[in-house]
């Protein structure tokens, strides 16, 4: 039982990482009033570009860097559509997801052909700061990226959003763009900025899957994690720390499912029940949070300067 729990907690942090990265990215953009449904596609593209560049350059970090840059560009494309052109956010986000998913599959087929076993690369190794200390040593054996996500990205997002002038502008743009504009802040620039930061984080989340967790790129690599991240942002009430809590709940359910599958128990219910469980739990969490969710007032509203 103890081993089971320790493994479960260890896996929870690992599984939560990509979703948390993407969800923090989504938090930035929604705080400024943009719902980025491109998240699923940006994660997918990040996973592909990260894998492709790491494979060809031989450097995982180069792969991660280029993946993040591709996410930034995708975020700027979302900005072009929703900020400059003022197009419907649902449709443009979904369009970006379909475009980037298609591009990844196109690129993968072009580079690697249609082979039956997907190519793999040596992935990031977990770091082990506490060595052989029982329990603690196991739980803290995580990827460096997981450490960065939980100890740097999340606190930094909280600090930027709530303790800096830029963060104040972001939140104000998401609540009342007219007033912020009157105060001399460039609404367009703020929205482009958060979409770029957000896109980079989403792509990093996707690249974590291909470069750390799997060491490969597969067709089902993201499998709706982007949608889960969007749900977690609502559940976490657009606050980075609560979003982290939401990501851990999803990650915990997902890890439980993985552990149960790994144990190979003969259960009277199909194993897909456990695979679907994290998504069902996310929907339930969303319902529970629904009443108290305070959406940014300007979410989904394009801003036109007259």
């Amino acid at each position: 039982m103890e081993v089971f729990l320790v493994n479960l907690i260890t896996a929870t942090f690992r599984v939560s990482t990509p979703i948390l990265l993407a969800a923090i990215g989504e938090t930035y953009s929604e705080r400024a009033g943009i719902l980025n449904l491109g998240i699923e596609g940006i994660m997918y593209f990040g996973a592909f570009i990260g894998f492709f560049v790491a494979d060809k350059s031989g450097s995982l970090w180069t792969g991660l860097f280029v993946a993040i840059m591709s996410g930034v560009i995708a975020g700027l494309l979302m900005g072009l559509l929703t900020v400059t052109l003022g197009v419907n956010q649902h449709v443009s986000g979904l369009g970006i997801t379909l475009l980037l998913t298609g591009l990844s599959l196109f690129g993968f087929r072009l580079v690697y052909g249609g082979r039956s076993t997907p190519p793999s690369i040596p992935s990031f190794q977990a770091v082990n700061p506490f060595g052989d200390i029982p329990i603690l040593g196991t739980i803290t054996q995580q990827y460096l990226l997981t450490y960065i996500t939980f100890l740097v990205i999340v606190p930094l997002a909280w600090f930027i959003l709530f303790k800096t002038r830029f963060g104040l502008n972001i939140r104000a743009v998401g609540e009342n763009p007219e007033a912020v504009d009157a105060a001399g802040v460039n609404v367009y620039l703020v929205r482009y900025g958060v979409l770029a930061i957000g896109g980079g984080l989403m792509a990093a989340g996707g690249a974590f899957l291909s470069l750390a967790q799997l060491g490969a790129f597969t067709h089902g690599i993201i499998a709706g994690r982007g949608w889960v991240a969007i749900a977690i942002v609502i559940f976490g009430n657009w606050s980075p720390v609560k979003v982290m809590g939401g990501a851990l709940i999803f990650g915990g359910t997902f890890a439980l499912q993985l552990r149960l599958q790994a144990m190979g128990l003969q259960l009277p219910i199909p194993y897909e029940t456990f695979l679907a469980l994290p998504y069902v739990v996310t929907i339930i969490a969303l319902v529970l949070a629904g009443r108290n969710a305070s959406y940014p007032a300007a979410l989904l509203k394009p801003y036109r300067r007259e």
Binding site: W227, I234, T273, L286, G290
Partner: peptide, 27 residues
Amino acid sequence: KLAVDEVVTTLLMNSVMAYIVSAILNG
């Protein structure tokens, strides 16, 4: 009834349905 955003729930339910189909076909 509860003002839960339909975009997110419909997207999540697509994932759930994929596993239901898989469960039916493997079972």
